Amino acid sequence: MSAVPELPHPERAEITLPEVLFALSDPERLAIARQLVNGPMEMAACSLSDPNMPKSTKSHLMKVLRESGVIRNDPQGRSRVLSLRREDLDARFPGLLDAVLAAGA
Protein backbone atom coordinates (compact mmCIF):
# COMPACT_ATOMS: atom_id res chain seq x y z
CA MET A 1 0.00 0.00 0.00
CA SER A 2 1.36 3.43 -0.91
CA ALA A 3 1.86 6.25 1.55
CA VAL A 4 -0.68 9.04 1.89
CA PRO A 5 0.39 11.76 -0.57
CA GLU A 6 1.64 15.19 0.51
CA LEU A 7 -0.81 18.00 -0.34
CA PRO A 8 0.20 21.49 -1.52
CA HIS A 9 0.02 24.35 0.99
CA PRO A 10 0.53 28.05 0.24
CA GLU A 11 3.73 29.64 1.49
CA ARG A 12 3.26 32.25 4.23
CA ALA A 13 3.73 35.12 1.75
CA GLU A 14 1.04 33.65 -0.53
CA ILE A 15 -1.69 33.67 2.14
CA THR A 16 -4.18 36.44 1.35
CA LEU A 17 -6.74 38.13 3.56
CA PRO A 18 -9.71 37.57 1.21
CA GLU A 19 -9.00 33.83 1.00
CA VAL A 20 -8.61 33.48 4.79
CA LEU A 21 -11.81 35.42 5.44
CA PHE A 22 -13.68 33.39 2.83
CA ALA A 23 -12.45 30.12 4.35
CA LEU A 24 -13.53 31.17 7.84
CA SER A 25 -16.88 32.59 6.67
CA ASP A 26 -18.50 29.15 6.49
CA PRO A 27 -19.83 27.91 9.86
CA GLU A 28 -18.54 24.35 9.35
CA ARG A 29 -15.06 25.51 8.32
CA LEU A 30 -14.97 27.95 11.24
CA ALA A 31 -15.95 25.10 13.59
CA ILE A 32 -13.08 22.98 12.23
CA ALA A 33 -10.60 25.83 12.81
CA ARG A 34 -11.89 26.25 16.37
CA GLN A 35 -11.32 22.53 17.02
CA LEU A 36 -7.66 22.98 16.09
CA VAL A 37 -6.96 25.87 18.51
CA ASN A 38 -5.58 23.54 21.17
CA GLY A 39 -3.31 21.66 18.79
CA PRO A 40 -3.23 19.22 15.90
CA MET A 41 -5.76 16.44 15.53
CA GLU A 42 -6.42 13.57 13.16
CA MET A 43 -8.76 14.48 10.33
CA ALA A 44 -11.00 11.52 11.21
CA ALA A 45 -11.43 12.88 14.77
CA CYS A 46 -12.50 16.32 13.55
CA SER A 47 -16.27 16.51 13.98
CA LEU A 48 -18.89 18.38 12.00
CA SER A 49 -22.23 19.66 13.27
CA ASP A 50 -24.01 17.26 10.90
CA PRO A 51 -22.61 13.73 11.40
CA ASN A 52 -24.45 12.61 8.25
CA MET A 53 -22.53 15.05 6.04
CA PRO A 54 -20.98 13.19 3.11
CA LYS A 55 -17.26 12.43 3.31
CA SER A 56 -16.76 14.35 0.07
CA THR A 57 -18.23 17.49 1.65
CA LYS A 58 -15.94 17.16 4.67
CA SER A 59 -12.97 16.74 2.32
CA HIS A 60 -14.00 19.88 0.43
CA LEU A 61 -14.21 21.87 3.68
CA MET A 62 -10.67 20.76 4.54
CA LYS A 63 -9.45 21.61 1.04
CA VAL A 64 -10.75 25.19 1.25
CA LEU A 65 -9.11 25.66 4.67
CA ARG A 66 -5.81 24.19 3.42
CA GLU A 67 -5.69 26.11 0.14
CA SER A 68 -6.43 29.39 1.94
CA GLY A 69 -3.56 28.82 4.36
CA VAL A 70 -5.71 28.44 7.49
CA ILE A 71 -4.70 24.83 8.19
CA ARG A 72 -2.03 22.29 7.34
CA ASN A 73 -3.16 18.82 6.32
CA ASP A 74 -0.19 16.50 6.66
CA PRO A 75 0.07 12.74 6.16
CA GLN A 76 0.83 10.63 9.21
CA GLY A 77 0.95 6.95 8.41
CA ARG A 78 -2.30 6.07 6.67
CA SER A 79 -4.20 9.04 8.09
CA ARG A 80 -3.96 12.83 8.02
CA VAL A 81 -3.26 15.30 10.79
CA LEU A 82 -4.75 18.79 10.71
CA SER A 83 -3.14 21.78 12.39
CA LEU A 84 -3.97 25.47 12.52
CA ARG A 85 -1.35 27.67 10.85
CA ARG A 86 -1.47 30.15 13.72
CA GLU A 87 2.15 31.31 13.39
CA ASP A 88 1.78 32.06 9.68
CA LEU A 89 -1.62 33.73 10.09
CA ASP A 90 -0.48 35.83 13.05
CA ALA A 91 2.59 36.96 11.09
CA ARG A 92 0.49 37.95 8.06
CA PHE A 93 -2.56 39.37 9.86
CA PRO A 94 -1.83 40.09 13.56
CA GLY A 95 -4.85 39.52 15.80
CA LEU A 96 -7.16 38.40 13.00
CA LEU A 97 -7.29 34.72 13.88
CA ASP A 98 -8.05 35.33 17.56
CA ALA A 99 -10.76 37.86 16.67
CA VAL A 100 -12.48 35.60 14.13
CA LEU A 101 -12.25 32.44 16.26
CA ALA A 102 -13.61 34.25 19.32
CA ALA A 103 -16.49 35.94 17.49
CA GLY A 104 -19.78 34.26 18.30
CA ALA A 105 -18.07 31.47 20.23
Rank of each mutant, 00 (worst) to 15 (best):
M1G: 00
M1N: 05
M1W: 06
S2N: 06
V4L: 15
P5E: 09
P5S: 07
E6N: 15
E6D: 15
E6H: 06
L7D: 04
L7W: 06
P8A: 14
P8Y: 04
P8H: 12
P8N: 12
P8D: 08
H9F: 05
H9P: 07
H9N: 14
E11C: 12
E11A: 15
E11W: 09
R12D: 08
A13Q: 13
E14S: 05
P18A: 09
E19M: 03
V20H: 05
V20N: 02
S25A: 15
S25W: 01
S25E: 00
D26G: 13
P27Q: 05
P27N: 14
E28H: 14
E28Q: 11
R29S: 03
A31N: 15
I32F: 02
A33Y: 08
A33S: 06
R34D: 01
Q35S: 02
L36G: 00
V37W: 04
N38K: 08
G39W: 13
P40I: 02
E42K: 06
A44G: 05
A45R: 04
S47Q: 06
L48T: 01
L48P: 00
S49V: 08
P51W: 11
N52C: 09
P54G: 14
K55H: 01
K55F: 01
T57L: 09
T57S: 12
H60M: 08
H60V: 02
M62N: 13
V64R: 04
V64E: 09
L65T: 02
L65M: 15
L65F: 03
E67P: 02
S68Q: 11
S68K: 03
I71L: 09
R72G: 11
R72A: 13
N73K: 02
N73T: 05
P75V: 09
Q76L: 15
Q76F: 11
G77K: 01
R78N: 04
S79K: 05
S79C: 07
S79M: 08
R80H: 00
V81C: 00
L84W: 03
L84S: 13
R85N: 12
R85D: 04
R85C: 12
E87D: 13
E87T: 10
D88K: 00
D88S: 15
D90Y: 09
A91I: 13
R92Q: 12
R92A: 11
P94Q: 13
G95W: 10
L96Q: 05
L97W: 02
D98T: 12
D98E: 13
D98I: 14
A99S: 04
A99I: 13
A99W: 12
A103W: 11
G104N: 04
G104Y: 15
G104C: 04
A105N: 15
